[in-house]
Design a protein around this nucleic acid. Structure first.
Lengths: 264, 264
DNA sequence: GGGTATTTGTCCGTATGTATT
DNA sequence: AAATACATACGGACAAATACC
């Protein structure tokens, strides 16, 4: 079992990290020091470090060194649960974040009118080349980029009177309530599909992710249904996988234990 | 914007892939051909390819070449939805998979008695160092590794009469029904927590994932609650993110459109 | 099976650039 | 400005896996 040298080096470093010999945030020896320690070339040491990087164990900072990654306290998003079945999504987000004493912020929506592409046509059961209104928002928590969100509505809603859908301003009561009042559409359910994929350039930029694709993103597609059980809204939300977690409550579940506050 | 050379090469190749000029499954030029095309060294070309690999766009096969990855049809797992709130988890899995005309297979459970670690103690609200029964299973669909699953039960259940929990054989009616009949525990709800992380060595081995951590795994922790709203079961399921998708149905939703069958 | 050509994998040494302290 | 540390790029050598004859 003569594993290649750079894998052996990576493995030894990994064990030192997992055993706690190298703590979170601690600096590893420099590449030149590791070269001498393991009697290998600097390039081989770098191959070992690359392996640890894609495994999410360490990060490099030019001019500084290589460090064990800090543990991240994840954001929690609730996708399903008793209290959430009737409200809209934006309100949930605000109330959820506020409940944890964190400060949410949402940009003004960027509104566009587009021709629906394949996946939107399928989820909203539109005709091919139908027009849709897209409302795109960026969300922050405590100033940290949290999610990118794009909602799709049939353009016919606007023609039927929901004019504020195409205005680039917030809808204070939420679009769910707005569409209920304006068009008599009430949301009786939704379906979420959760997948993971590599981020695109937009997403790496907004979330400040490394530009190789080693931190993936969640893509949550929420299709909402009206009282006729027809899809009338599609919301696609993107979250980095390295700092997010989803919770789904079904049936009777107790309240979650809150995070321990730190010293006062 | 003098981007580094290997990034430029990767970008050009990426565009050829996304434009369809290089189709799924198609072979890229060899490293030596790319070296000549881009007037770079072989190592620089290899750096570009590594970037495309971590982005999940291409894969290399020693002795053969570099290929655009094939698109994968994802397995769909339903985490919440009307029909699923009362049944157990194993039965759901079998009925779900069978409904899509795929062949599920589950190994006999490997049963162990362990001292609960921190996260199990927290989710099951046990005392520190409490004993738990773990039942571990491997699941396949059409012979393909699908998920790794470990369930945790308090050891006190066995002492109270649920002796079959510590037998390494399947419980045909499902553990949910077994515990209801034996101990009067009925499952009135559950909470799922979905996170993504790098796979460990066990997981890369079972799922045949690349041994660098570039394909992450879902970790789904399901805590089930009894009629007193106390946690009585924890099931941790692991799925590779590159071929799995989760669906959560809330409220009234129509049936999902089935996949198109192929010719006949 | 064996042998050979092709292709990617590993490892080395070196030089220079860029970011940080 | 100088020193340190990682990033990029080159070229070369040999190993290992695969395909083909």
């Amino acid at each position: 079992m003569p594993e290649s040298m750079y894998r052996q080096i990576a493995e030894e470093l990994r064990q030192k990290i997992e055993s706690g010999e190298l703590a979170h945030g601690a600096q590893l020896p420099t590449e030149l020091e590791l070269r001498d320690q393991y009697d290998a070339s600097r390039n081989t040491v770098r191959d070992a470090i690359k392996l640890l990087i894609t495994r999410g164990l360490v990060e490099t900072r030019p001019g500084q060194g290589t460090f064990v990654v800090e543990k991240i306290v994840p954001f929690v998003t609730i996708l399903a649960g008793e209290a959430y079945e009737s409200a809209g999504d934006s309100e949930i987000y605000v109330q959820e974040v506020a409940a944890k004493r964190r400060q949410p912020m949402t940009t003004k929506p960027r509104v566009e009118i587009q021709t629906a592409d394949g996946s939107v046509v399928r989820d909203l059961q539109l005709e091919l080349n139908a027009q849709v209104v897209t409302r795109h928002q960026q969300r922050y928590i405590d100033g940290i980029p949290f999610s990118l969100q794009t909602s799709y509505y049939p353009m016919s809603f606007v023609e039927q009177g929901a004019a504020r859908l195409i205005q680039a301003s917030d809808i204070p009561e939420g679009t769910v309530a707005y569409l209920r009042n304006e068009l008599g559409l009430s949301q009786v359910g939704y379906r979420d599909k959760v997948t993971v994929r590599a981020p695109d350039a937009n997403e790496t930029g907004f979330f400040k992710l490394p530009d190789d694709g080693r931190v993936a993103v969640f893509e949550v597609r929420r299709t909402a249904f009206d009282q006729k059980r027809r899809p009338y809204r599609l919301t696609v939300s993107i979250y980095p996988t390295d700092r997010n977690q989803f919770t789904i409550n079904v049936g009777q579940v107790p309240d979650e234990l809150p995070d321990q506050p730190k010293t006062g």
